[in-house]
Amino acid sequence: MLTVNRVYDLLLREYGPQHWWPGRTDFEVAIGAILTQSVSWKNVESAIRTLRGERLLHPRRLHALGARELAPLIRPTGYFNQKAKKLLNFLDWFRGYGYSFAKAAGADTAILREELLAVNGIGPETADSILLYAMGRKVFVVDAYTRRVFTRLGILLGSESYDAIQRMFHARFRGGVPEYNEYHALIVNHGKEVCRKRPLCGRCRLARACPSRVSESDPAASITRTAG
Rank of each mutant, 00 (worst) to 15 (best):
L2V: 07
V4N: 12
R6G: 12
D9T: 13
L10A: 14
L11N: 09
R13Y: 07
R13G: 02
Y15W: 11
Y15C: 06
Y15D: 00
P17V: 10
W20Q: 07
R24M: 08
R24P: 05
A30F: 03
G32M: 09
G32S: 14
Q37G: 04
V39S: 14
S40A: 15
S40W: 12
I48H: 01
L51S: 08
P59N: 04
H63N: 15
R68Y: 08
E69T: 08
L70W: 04
A71K: 04
A71T: 04
G78L: 08
Y79H: 13
F80K: 01
N81F: 09
Q82V: 08
Q82D: 00
K85W: 13
L87I: 14
L87S: 01
L88V: 12
N89H: 14
L91I: 10
L91V: 10
Y99V: 02
A105R: 15
A105T: 12
G106N: 12
A110P: 06
I111S: 05
E115W: 04
E115P: 00
I122T: 02
G123T: 03
G123F: 01
T126W: 06
S129N: 04
A134C: 10
R137Y: 11
D143S: 02
D143W: 00
A144N: 06
R147I: 06
T151L: 09
I155K: 03
I155R: 04
I155N: 04
S161I: 08
I165C: 03
I165H: 00
Y180F: 15
E182H: 06
E182T: 03
A185H: 03
I187S: 01
V188P: 06
N189S: 09
N189L: 14
H190E: 08
H190T: 08
C195I: 00
R196H: 09
K197L: 10
R203L: 14
R205M: 09
A207T: 01
A207N: 00
C210I: 02
C210L: 07
R213K: 11
S215T: 10
E216T: 07
S217D: 14
D218G: 05
A220P: 02
S222A: 13
T224Y: 08
T224D: 04
R225E: 14
T226L: 01
